[in-house]
Design a protein around this nucleic acid. Structure first.
Length: 357
DNA sequence: ATTCATGCTGACTGCGTGTT
DNA sequence: AACACGCAGTCAGCATGAAT
């Protein structure tokens, strides 16, 4: 039995066992080997065993590239997200991959690192790989190059929590960010908070826009309550900077909402340097769980979403589109979990930190 | 005679490379 | 520039031989 299936060298160049060699080794025709490999019904048990024995002894692995030449099918799906190192996105990818693998597809994952140029480059590369479908969470919904590449992709596209009106051919799986955020703000207002700060993410993506719009909408319905938003990147650096700006400026909020798990890390790092104790001096709510957040005391009030579900559902939308169904969109809920990090605001304004940092 | 498993042949696929 | 070829496997259609 070969130790490394399908690999070897011949004269310094890579040599892979071909179907012809399997046929010769088994003493059968190439077409018979092909029938065995593809599970054709007209194959006797003796023939199957003979071929499988040769395949095993030679370590043959059918070449997907060669298969795709004839069939036109690569059984590969392109998956582009901002950063595969983000545990939240890793969970989405895992759920989607599991779903697609069950249907014989391989996922080709790429991180755009919030860089539209790199993202466009990935999309072009995936086209070269002849992927049969795309799962994409774009960095900038308005970027003409990205939108153009997706429009011309010629394969089904599913957007992950993104809105691109110029791309009506794409399906989409989105979260109702407004629902969870509205519940959180109402809870804070019920506790007595009158100034709420949101450390938002990129304005070029749907989740940030939805949250910001929802915040202004709900605040408009709550007499005496104001909101301040600091948008930026989905990054801890922005989280720290914006927190510092919000808490050291005029009209300091008594409650803060962190717009993502990466932003939360920055928010917490800024709070570690500022004289605020949670929840005594400041109420804190986060959007999405962070890996270590479960060990924080008090527990963090969190706007949660089922990320594994959006992974599964987006994979299903893509499978549906691959089967010829027209594009469609779905919306999944977000839920506010209140916890110890929220309390009534302090009777006097929160302590004023020293201006030097 | 019929059925089934198997073999054989040639077309076919997209792309890069070599030849005319 | 145009054309031919090789790559590695799939596929369809037909031929063949053995078993029922």
């Amino acid at each position: 039995m070969a130790s490394d299936p399908g690999f070897g060298t011949r004269g310094g160049r890579p040599h892979r066992v071909a179907i012809r060699e399997v046929a010769e080794h088994a003493g059968v025709a190439v077409s018979s080997v092909s029938r065995v490999i593809s599970g054709h019904p007209d194959v006797s048990e003796t023939m199957r065993e003979k071929v499988m024995k040769a395949i095993d002894e030679l370590g043959f692995v059918p070449g997907l590239a060669a298969q795709s030449i004839r069939t036109g099918a690569t059984k590969t799906i392109g998956f582009v997200i901002s950063d595969i190192r983000n545990p939240l996105l890793a969970e989405i990818a895992h759920a989607a991959e599991t779903r697609l693998r069950m249907r014989g597809y391989t996922l080709l994952m790429m991180s755009s690192l919030h860089d539209p140029e790199l993202e466009a480059d990935h999309l072009r590369r995936l086209a070269q790989h002849r992927v049969e479908g795309l799962l994409v969470s774009v960095t900038d919904e308005q970027n003409p190059e990205t939108v153009g590449l997706l429009a011309r992709a010629g394969v089904p596209v599913v957007l992950l929590d993104r809105d691109i009106p110029d791309l009506p051919t794409a399906s989409a799986a989105r979260f109702d960010h407004a629902g969870g955020l509205t519940a959180a703000v109402r809870h804070l207002a019920d506790l007595g908070h009158r100034s709420i700060g949101l450390v938002g993410g990129s304005p070029h993506t749907r989740p940030s826009r939805e949250r910001e719009q929802a915040l202004h909408r709900v605040v408009a319905e709550l007499p005496g309550v104001t909101a301040r938003v600091h948008g930026g990147d989905f990054a801890k650096e922005h989280g720290a900077k914006a927190t510092y700006a919000l808490l050291t400026g005029e009209d300091r909020p008594t409650a803060l909402i962190a717009g993502s798990n990466q932003i939360l890390v920055g928010v917490l790092s800024a709070l570690a340097e500022l004289p605020y104790e949670i929840p005594r001096d400041l109420s804190l709510v986060t959007c999405d769980d962070a890996p270590m957040a479960a060990f924080l005391r008090p527990r963090l009030a969190t706007i949660r979403r089922d990320v594994a579900r959006i992974g599964r559902e987006s994979a299903d939308l893509l499978l549906e589109a691959l089967a010829g169904a027209p594009p469609r969109s779905i919306e999944l809920p977000t839920r506010f979990d209140r916890a110890g990090s929220c309390a009534a605001p302090p009777p006097s304004p929160p302590p004023s930190p020293s201006p030097d940092r």
